[in-house]
Design a protein around this nucleic acid. Structure first.
Lengths: 341, 341
DNA sequence: ATTAGCACTCATTGTATTTGACTGCTAATA
DNA sequence: TATTAGCAGTCAAATACAATGAGTGCTAAT
């Protein structure tokens, strides 16, 4: 049923559509790819491919456009992912080797680089604290009524926050806090920082609640991974694409990027170390039905180091995008192992 | 020449245009605002106002649209800035009283609030370090090859960075660094942290250059005010406006927001404590000719605490925008004085 | 299994026409 | 002198219609 020639033609149609963003006609396929068969033959195959659900028409006498199912087959079976040039490899290496301070910064650099090479809009979120172990906690006195609280985890993640008080706090108290927190929490999973701690410290140290409460509050915020590390690059690049001549779509897209929740949702869904591809209405969300998203989750064991995503039209250049993403993911891993050996 | 009635009619035209985004006809003015004179009279006045440069036509037989000069007069002389409701005042108070940790966070909250109330796109940048005095410098050892460097300034601004080394560093060295830096720099303007410091420390402390260089490098970055604190809120809100039915404009707008440089330029231009209004081609930049920008620079003496801006169509609701901005600026000042008394 | 050929479909483009929301101007009026 | 009624003139926008041509599907021949 789906013989080799049909597969070949399907690939050619998707390739062509990715390039031109116009419905693909049988004549074009013959002209550019299949010089030895007639357009009528191609038309027959196209009709079959449509019956099987791989292609669609925009109206009765139009050329064909890939369906989500068509893209899926294309991405899963018809593509090779080595579409990356020597220059691109060099460029990525250069960018990722720049001494980034901390995993968050590195993720941002990777996100920017991905957008630069692919010319699509990219997004990322930094590492999740979940599952990480506390390696060190430090409180630093700044003035008389301010502390900086710092947590370092076993993956090298560093988070810090400012804590302000309504009454003075002295160095001695801070030393005690440092000893106390490290003693109690070093080596423990980061989730151990929770409300129960407040009571415990109050009982043990007898510090004023005006001191203890702000500390616990802020430290809890610190491990909550809010939208702090959401990062977006190259929104304008998407606007150059022909699909965005429809104002409707353009508006949707801006909304999408602006209401971060949806993007966060998607970036948080993927699983470890794998590149995930969501094509059009494969996304649960209605607003995403005209877009495709490719994500890569960077992690070590069950510890998350951040997720990078690319969002573009359904007819995005999957071959290029995935090739580049694979390479970046490889480099990120190398880089991490290098720094944590 | 520009008698009271003409001023009144000009104001009415701008009001009407701000509301409807359509060229304003003489008939509409009579119907909605001036029941006692005829449309012919209004037409005569409109023709005069056009001759004086306050109004424009989109084509010979169209209604009138305010020119930049018209908006300018409207904003400078015809508007009262008390267009803020009790609910809005309450809402702003509530938002700004939430205990923000640090001036940067407060600026972000103010930016979000401004966007929520006005329904326009808002941007902000955090405080500039320029002119600030160093109150305290701290280095905190994290592990064996990592330091956190922290600077606190006299306005309460706190900045920190991670510094990584290729060789180990011990607590004793860190203590020396702390003593040394504070001794040398406490009370000094923050600009004193520069390249010359590297040589000096090397001479005095004889630490390995592998230790000194990263420290100086990162500390210099810290006071450089890069785009770190650029913050954008409500890009999608602008897209609901009728002027953005022109795809051209929409594209320009996205580009504008995406290439932060231009926004940063503008936010950095204004002067202390004043609300500045840039209407259409009053902006030097060509890309901004269809937009208006209103900025407010928050500062104490010559020390910058951040700038908030709003960007919208030329026919933005100046009355509302400026009223709300005035109130927010007042609150920010109160809040700052409260915290630094 | 492939292909030539033709009828048919339909989005797109171009052209002409109508409509109506405006203005500017003139002459009358208060 | 300031206002107004009234009307001719302008032009964007809407409507209608025909022509174009890029596609397809199907049939009959190879």
């Amino acid at each position: 049923m789906l013989d080799e020639r049909k597969k070949k033609i399907l690939k050619e149609i998707v390739d062509e559509y990715i390039e031109t963003a116009e419905p693909v006609s049988s004549a074009i396929i013959v002209e550019k790819y299949e010089n030895d068969i007639s357009s009528a033959t191609v038309r027959n195959d196209m009709a079959d491919l449509e019956k099987m659900g791989y292609l669609e028409k925009t109206h009765t006498s139009s050329g064909r456009v890939p369906s989500a199912k068509g893209y899926r087959l294309y991405v899963d079976e018809l593509l090779k992912y080595d579409n990356i040039s020597l220059e691109e490899i060099k460029y990525i290496q250069e960018k990722l080797e720049s001494k980034a301070n901390g995993i968050e910064e590195l993720t941002k650099i990777a996100t920017t680089t991905l957008s630069e090479i692919t010319h699509y809009t990219t997004v990322s979120i930094g590492p999740k604290t979940t599952g990480q172990l506390i390696e060190e906690i430090k409180f630093v006195l700044l003035g008389n009524r301010m502390l900086m609280g710092i947590i370092v985890t076993d993956t090298g993640l560093v988070r810090e926050t400012i804590i302000k008080f309504d009454e003075d706090i002295n160095q001695e108290q801070v030393d005690t806090l440092n000893y106390f927190f490290n003693n109690k929490l070093k080596g423990e999973p980061i989730e151990k920082i929770d409300a129960s701690l407040e009571e415990y410290i109050f009982r043990e140290l007898k510090y004023s609640i005006n001191i203890i409460r702000p500390i616990i509050e802020q430290m809890k915020k610190l491990i909550q991974d809010e939208e702090e590390n959401f990062y977006l690059e190259g929104a304008n690049k998407s606007f150059e694409l022909p699909e965005f001549k429809s104002l409707e779509l353009a508006k949707n897209f801006v909304n999408l990027l602006d209401t971060k929740e949806l993007m966060l949702d998607i970036l948080n869904t993927g699983f470890a170390e794998d590149i995930k591809i969501y094509i059009g209405d494969e996304n649960e969300n209605e607003d995403l039905k005209d877009f495709s998203i490719v994500t890569f989750k960077h992690s070590v064991g069950d510890k998350d180091l951040g997720t990078i995503g690319i969002i573009g039209p359904k007819r995005m250049n999957y071959s290029k995008v995935i090739s580049v993403m694979k390479y970046i993911s490889k480099k990120l891993n190398e880089n991490f192992n290098e720094n944590n050996k």
